[in-house]
């Protein structure tokens, strides 16, 4: 409850920090904020153009020469949100160590800043994807209304795991080195680039142990197949996500005192 009140008191700081982050990223560039839109647009356009030309593979159930590009973009949208929030939560206490040592403010504001700025990036990417989808003639459907559910699940999972590891990272800095490497493996264990049906049936259950598999497949079913995500595949990621966030909070309250000592 105290934490909630503290966040509310620091709401302006959180918003101002997010603004500051974008401002300083684009300061001294003549296009300024336009880069915020150009970056994701370029990223998506490259997938669409290059991949549709080189790998014009047809996907079952979708009738377009851009099928693979569309599939890839859908997965990337989910994964990039996860990777950004997870990666930055991991370093959030260490990177702001100086601030935490010198100023008394609720630490909990820091992951909120990370989340906020990752969300802005993700919305821009989403916008760019919708534009490119439109150009490719792939119109989204009402299934988009399911997207917030996936978004929230992704955020909880990324924050929970990222913060739990981020707290340990304050004391054992190797975590900050090894986790990004593991994250790359994790990317290839998740069906973003490949289609899950490529995986032999007997390994399917193994693949689904990865909570990101269900989430990314949810994104794909909404954006590629215009269908509601398979709820049964989301229960497991959501459970893991909530457990991870619970763990992160538990560790935060346990480690709170010692964290400032070690920074």
């Amino acid at each position: 409850m105290n934490q909630l009140r503290a966040i509310w008191a620091y709401r302006y700081f959180v918003i101002s920090s997010i603004k500051t982050e974008f401002r300083s990223r684009f300061a001294r560039s003549s296009l300024g904020g336009i880069w915020m839109i150009l970056h994701p647009l370029a990223q998506v356009a490259i997938y669409a153009l290059v991949l549709s030309a080189v790998l014009a593979a047809k996907l079952p159930g979708i009738n377009s020469q851009y099928a693979y590009a569309i599939y890839l973009m859908a997965g990337i949208l989910g994964w990039s949100l996860f990777a950004e929030v997870f990666g930055r939560s991991l370093g959030v206490f260490v990177d702001n160590g100086n601030l935490l040592k010198k100023m008394a403010f609720p630490k909990i504001a820091l992951p909120l800043i990370v989340t906020g700025s990752a969300l802005v990036n993700n919305f821009l990417l989403f916008g760019a994807i919708l534009i490119v989808f439109g150009l490719l003639g792939h119109l989204p459907s009402l299934a988009l209304l399911w997207l917030p559910l996936l978004l929230v699940t992704t955020l909880i999972l990324a924050l929970g795991l990222g913060l739990a590891l981020g707290i340990i990272n304050v004391f054992v800095r190797d975590i900050g080195q090894i986790v990004p490497i593991l994250l790359q493996f994790w990317f290839w264990l998740t069906p973003v680039v490949y289609v899950s049906s490529l995986i032999p049936e007997k390994y399917h259950s193994v693949m689904m142990l990865n909570p990101m598999s269900g989430i990314v497949m949810g994104y794909q079913s909404i954006l590629v197949y215009n269908k509601a995500p398979d709820m049964s595949m989301l229960i497991y990621p959501l459970t893991i996500a909530c457990a991870a966030l619970g763990l992160a909070f538990f560790m935060y309250f346990r480690a709170n005192e010692e964290m400032a000592d070690a920074l």
Binding site: Y12, F13, R23, F105
Partner: peptide, 19 residues
């Protein structure tokens, strides 16, 4: 890269003040 004014806003925010 921020101006003095923007930094003043930001620092005061860090002290827990609203806009």
């Amino acid at each position: 890269d921020l101006t003095g004014r923007q930094n003043a806003y930001h620092s005061a925010g860090l002290m827990g003040y609203t806009s």
